[in-house]
Nucleic acid binder design. Structure first.
Lengths: 186, 186
DNA sequence: ATTATCTATAGATCTATAGATAATGC
DNA sequence: ATTATCTATAGATCTATAGATAATGC
């Protein structure tokens, strides 16, 4: 049942992409190798021959999710668009395709150093992106404003996903959006 | 090995308090009944005779954690103090004694309805408390400002706990603190 | 007699590995 | 000959239950 090198590389990509999505949806620790294998359309034995361990697969899947995030937001060049997209119903309802920081942030205190390092790098990347969209005079002020904006976006998104009431979720999204837009114009 | 009714009630309290703390530290799903029993100084069989299932224990432990939160913040009557305490190094380093919303928020999308209902109630309670400390004219404006402040606090805290770099963690805490204090005086 | 707790264990699930299979790659 | 994948299974862990124990509560 051996496949071509090319096919094996494609399978690896497929595993990574589906794992990056599934881990954001269900959590790294909570999702099993069987579920990850099924999502990729293979048996779990194949995941082990490709990655060796769940930890290794998780490391690569976190990298994959962060790369997807960077790619999906690279076209955004103004803070209003960034905030509107991030704090949208669509983003709220699609954790598997959404921000890896919001999806994985709570697991980081219990994650390995390698995974936390990659996550931390992703946090810095998001802060730098948002900082570049800020209008404050000094770089320090822009960074501080960006950090606060990132915290508000991540907090607003995870809270809107957590609550068991759609109206409250929408209220959280709209209140955080308008707060960020008000502070951006001041 | 039977104990008095009073002792049994005390044991139940002890289990609840240590479970509320351990679940905030390690996550509801990630902590096992053995670990919860050990933390309470009992065997896991005792936890089952007291609560029947892990789900039931988790439901009560989430309630316990939210009650503790309400009690710990009931004395705070100005927004500056609230923000300073919430976004402090001390709070960041003590998830087991800290805000249940920040500790459990990411698990809620995968939690039972009962647990999510209690969590949602806790979110409303925090918003209402913070709203009462806001200076805006209308109730609607105060609520919106409170929601945004809660999102910034929760986001800032979970991000500072997640990153693998103490300097960045401190920067996140201080930037979110100053952002919230600036918006409170405007 | 009732019951809070403990011990032992069942059954499910999870990570991981060994060995077989079958097709590629040299 | 090498290797990507699959099958079968080991070993650990996790939730849960049955039955024993021993002291309370009526």
């Amino acid at each position: 049942m051996r496949v071509t090198k090319q096919q094996a590389a494609q399978n690896r990509e497929k595993i990574l992409i589906s794992a990056a999505s599934l881990m954001r949806e269900r959590g790294i620790a909570s999702v099993g190798m069987d579920a990850l294998a099924e999502a990729a359309g293979m048996t779990h034995g194949s995941l082990y021959s490709q990655f060796g361990s769940k930890e290794r697969l998780a490391e690569e899947a976190v990298r994959q999710a962060l790369v997807e995030n960077a790619r999906n937001t690279s076209d955004v060049s103004d803070i209003g668009t960034y905030v509107s997209r991030y704090l949208s119903r669509k983003h709220c309802d699609a954790p598997g395709d959404g921000c890896a920081l919001a999806a994985l942030v709570s697991e980081m205190p219990r994650s390995s150093q390698t995974i936390r390092d990659r996550f931390t790098h992703g946090v810095r990347a998001m802060i730098e992106h948002v900082s570049g969209l800020m209008h404050a005079r000094s770089a320090r002020q822009r960074d501080d404003a960006a950090i606060a904006a990132v915290a508000t976006m991540v907090g607003g998104l995870v809270l809107s996903r957590a609550v068991n009431d759609d109206k409250l979720a929408d209220r959280i999204l709209s209140a955080t959006r308008s707060s960020l837009k008000a502070s951006a114009t001041s």
